[in-house]
Design a protein around this nucleic acid. Structure first.
Lengths: 157, 157
DNA sequence: AGTATACTCCGGTTTTCCACTAGGGTTTTG
DNA sequence: CAAAACCCTAGTGGAAAACCGGAGTATACT
């Protein structure tokens, strides 16, 4: 189990973090076209393997990865890493619609006037956070990690 | 119990919603300088009274509200409604620091490189949401509710 | 063809958190 | 001094999240 994130409005669930880490592994070997097995990912990122299996299955149903069964099987990205946004990933895992500005009517659904106004403002904050996540692709995250790795190396020398 | 909000990155907890509704009530009678009792608020907004008590106590410890004990007691806003931001309110309730850009080092605390990069991006999304909430004051919410009330009235005629 | 490998489906368990409840106190008014 | 109202602390129930296990099915390699 991963330690809890700081208690802030935008929470990164364990589920989403695991999935993102797994997808990063898949992105790293994307060009090889060779499938990567859950076992390898789980060891690399220290994720409970049976749990990871479920998450990858969810990602498959969400169309983000493809799977190959049997011996020499495993998972591959369904699309190029620069065509997968972070918003898509968390939307797939947490089970909400990845499109921005989904329902104004959620505010209408509120029973009281106060409730509706509050709901509107919260949706505005939600939009802002979602927009950030939509503007990052898997590739971006990989690039940033690689850049950081280079930087750490330079400090070491 | 309030029905759950849509499953999205930015969640509005029951706690924060109750507190906000209570503060709206206090804001409405702010100019009278007369304290408002938990019982009245709980009836008005249909919030479990003993639970509301706790939330108001938290708001008091957070310096958002003042209390007057004994008979004829109750709660008043500690400041003018236009000097209380929504970010302060949820920060008080959820127990995090209301100042923006609080800790870059949370990213440093991550054990792995990937973890740090992901944490950074999530903080960016978090910042975006927080900024929205910081730019709304209690007064803004009151004003918007009143405007909406006028609008509904016009449609009715 | 057969066997080992690895995904697939599905149900169960454990843990954690949240909304809420409860009891016994302290302060103030009248 | 009694009633009204806030104050403090602990505990409960249910739901969701995190995780585990077993039986099944597809694929590769020999």
């Amino acid at each position: 189990m991963i330690d809890p994130q700081p208690i802030v409005p935008v929470e990164l669930s364990c589920k989403s973090e695991y999935a993102l880490l797994a997808l990063l592994e898949l992105a790293a070997i994307y060009t090889t076209k060779e499938p990567l097995q859950t076992r390898q990912i789980s060891v690399q990122q220290s994720i409970p393997d049976r749990y990871l299996e479920q998450l990858l299955a969810t990602l498959r149903r969400g169309g983000l990865v493809r799977s190959q069964r049997g011996a020499k099987g495993g998972y591959l990205l369904a699309r190029e890493p620069w065509k997968i946004t972070l918003l898509e990933i968390v939307a797939c895992l947490e089970g909400f619609d990845p499109q921005l500005n989904p329902q104004e009517d959620a505010a209408k659904a509120a029973k009281t006037l106060e409730g509706a106004v509050i709901s509107e403002i919260w949706q505005e904050a939600d939009q802002a956070a979602k927009t950030i996540l939509q503007n990052y692709t898997l590739q971006d995250v990989c690039d940033r990690r690689d850049a950081r790795r280079q930087l750490d190396l330079m400090y070491y020398i």
